[in-house]
Amino acid sequence: MRNFFALILCLLPVLSAAQDWEDRQVFKGTAPTQTLRILSSTDTVFFAPIISGFLAENPTWSVEYFVTGTAEITGRFQAAPDTFDIVISSAMDLQLKLVNDGFALEVGGVDLPDWAQWRQRLFAFTSEPATIVVNRNAFADKPIPRTRQELIQVLRAAPETFRGKLGTYDIRQSGLGYLFATQDARASETFWRLMEVMGSLDAKLYCCSGDMIDHVASGDLLVAYNVLGSYAVSRQKSDNRFEIIRPSDFPTTMMRTGFVSRHAPHPGAASDFLRYMIKVQTAAPSGGNFPLPPLELNPAGANPSVISLEPALMTYLDRLKRSVFIKEWTNAVVQ
């Protein structure tokens, strides 16, 4: 067994090199003897403080952090569930399906409300709203829209200004984009009208929030829809060329989730890491030290805008539902 793991460890760099990661970094404790492997969709810069904090408490560990898109996580993890200890993703539906399919290990000692955990295996650790990011200059002479309806009106009022300068997730590529889109569609018909308007104005499609924010800031885009608020807020600290809008008609709030693989090579340490991560993300004065937004544990219960962790999340993952939804969306946006 030991030899087997040694072989894997030797081959890992070779295997990993063969794969195409968005980012891949190794964080070393002060006296590392073993390595936790985390598969994640969260950009390294946002997650690094949590890893560093964990390593400060557990100096005998190293953490190897792999970043890839939400849609790829499922495939990569299912192909080799015993090579990763922890899976972190913002695509709640895909995460929930992995747990429902029996890929997750039960982790004890985590006390989260029902809507923020599922089966004591899948745990939420952030609350992140979907936002609309607009270029400040473009709206210098117009009122900034506060709802989707107002955005539609703004776009219709000046179609030529916004043609080719709108961006949103390509829900065919991005798991998070698909989650936001389906939840929006579930909430209101306004979503479809907005998509039709954006499609008619040649909206550009993106894989990731970071690129959309970049392009809005630079002025390549004037409006980006369903951008991750946490990334935008973080970027805004150094860049004030854009405005972040949380739509007041029906906000959609996503929670980043994580679970320990049932086939994890280091289940004990992986569980410790998960507990540590949830502890720092739910501690009262969070956010100061960690760039990821904390999990807002409202004592009154779940905020209705929060997508809660329940089996219904699998609805839009259904092949038939997905093909119908994507067909409708493509008809509206790509045209």
Binding site: N100, G102, D114, W118, R119, Q120, R186, E310, P311, A312, M314, T315, D318, L320, K321, V324
Partner: peptide, 20 residues
């Protein structure tokens, strides 16, 4: 085509988070 509603699976939520 089976465009089933969100409630189809939502109604199966249980306190013990049963797998579906």
């Amino acid at each position: 085509e089976v465009d089933f509603p969100y409630a189809s699976l939502s109604m199966l939520s249980t306190d013990a988070d049963d797998r579906v």
